[in-house]
Every structure is written in C-alpha cells, then in structure tokens.
C-alpha cells in the first residue's frame, strides 16, 4: 500500500458515498446513467470473484464487499424506488458494444487463460469504458448537477491515481502489470474533457455545463 493507492481507494469510496447522498438528498437519480451503474456492478462482481478464494487483508475484503454491495444497491434502487426519477430515453448508449468489446479484449489480452484471470481481465477492460454511457448522456443533456459532477470527479480521480500507483510500484517494487495500466490510461483519457470542465467551472463554483 502506498499513498497514491490509499487516496485512490478513498476517492472511490467517497464517489459512491456522494452518489448515494445525491440520490437520497434529491430523492432522484436524474442525471445518473443506469447503464453505467449496471456496468460498474458487472465490473465489481467479475473482478472480485476471488473474494472467497484469496485472502489479502480485512481492508481488501471489506472494500470488495462494499463495492459489490453498494453498486448492487444502486442498480436495485434505480430500478425500484427511484425508477420514475430518471429518463431511460436519455440513457441510450449501446452497452452491448462495451460488454462485447471488453470480452474480445480479455480473450486476446490476458496473462493466464483461467476462469478467475479471464473474468478479472474482463472487469479491467470493462471498467475502462464503463463511464461512457454516463459521459454520453451528459453530452446529450449538456449539463450535470454539481453533486453529480463531484461524484464523477472522485470516480475518475480514483483510476487516475491508480495509474500513478502503478508507476510508483514499478519504481519501488518492480511490480508491473501492463493490462490495468493500459486500461487505466484509456479511462483517464476518456475523462479528459470532463476533468477540464470540472476544473475550469465546477471548482470555481459554477454549474457543470458543456460549451
């Protein structure tokens, strides 16, 4: 564990708490892409299949359980209690391409052809693009609530900091995995436009609006 990964994990934790807060406080999931939330649930379930086979630490297990449980809770609540508060007509990104593309990528690029390793790799590739339905929806509507922008910033910063963590780990431990590094870079690049608007507008107290 190093400071980059710790802060990254805490940002990830914060992002989910901010999202839960937004839904509870506004009693609405408006502006949130259900498809992105569904993809994150798939990401965490497929990545943490080793939850029962491989013990790392209490921290590691608790975070895995939280990420699976919270993403499942959000997907469930968006379908149930908050079903009427968001508009599926705005959430039109074709996630079949993301699900299929991540499957192809994990079949071509992986380190071992085993059940756990393939699903882990699948989750890494899928996470890189899971935010696309959300960004696509925001590009259609041209705006986002401030609390939603904070949620997305924390979520994007988490993976960006993981990239820094991997560079740091390579320098200090010789630990290197190129698949998550590449996927983390792709994800961070996808966030570039969002980060630009976030820093230039939301951080200065203005509303998140696309030019």
């Amino acid at each position: 564990m190093n400071v980059f990964r710790l802060v990254a994990d805490l940002m990830h934790l914060a992002s989910i708490l901010i999202l839960l807060l937004k839904i509870r406080k506004t009693r609405s999931a408006a502006g949130i892409s259900f498809k992105s939330q569904l993809l994150y649930l798939i990401v965490f379930v497929t990545r943490y299949l080793d939850l029962f086979t491989h013990w790392v630490s209490l921290y590691n297990t608790a975070m895995k359980v939280f990420f699976i449980a919270s993403s499942g809770y959000i997907v469930y609540q968006m379908q149930r209690r908050y079903r009427a508060t968001w508009d599926p007509a705005l959430d039109t990104f074709r996630i079949e391409f993301l699900l299929g593309g991540a499957a192809v990528m994990s079949l071509i690029f992986h380190t071992k052809f085993t059940f756990l390793e393939l699903f882990w790799t699948y989750s890494i590739w899928l996470e890189a693009v899971a935010i696309l339905p959300q960004l696509f929806q925001m590009s259609r509507t041209g705006e986002a609530e401030t609390i939603t922008a904070h949620y997305l910033f924390a979520l994007g910063a988490y993976r960006g900091l993981y990239v820094v963590n991997w560079i740091y780990r390579y320098a200090t431990e010789g630990y290197w995995e190129w698949i998550p590094f590449l996927a983390g870079m792709v994800q961070t690049v996808l966030y570039a436009d969002f980060f630009y608007v976030y820093f230039s507008r939301v951080m200065r107290g203005k509303k998140f609006e696309l030019p």
């Binding site: 080793d50 590691n60 975070m63 756990l116 390793e117 882990w120």
Partner: peptide, 10 residues
Amino acid sequence: AAVAGGKDEL
C-alpha cells in the same frame, strides 16, 4: 504476483 491468486489491489 502478477496473476490471480496474488492480486492485492482493488
């Protein structure tokens, strides 16, 4: 520890 079984990250 580069493959499943040795992963310590989230």
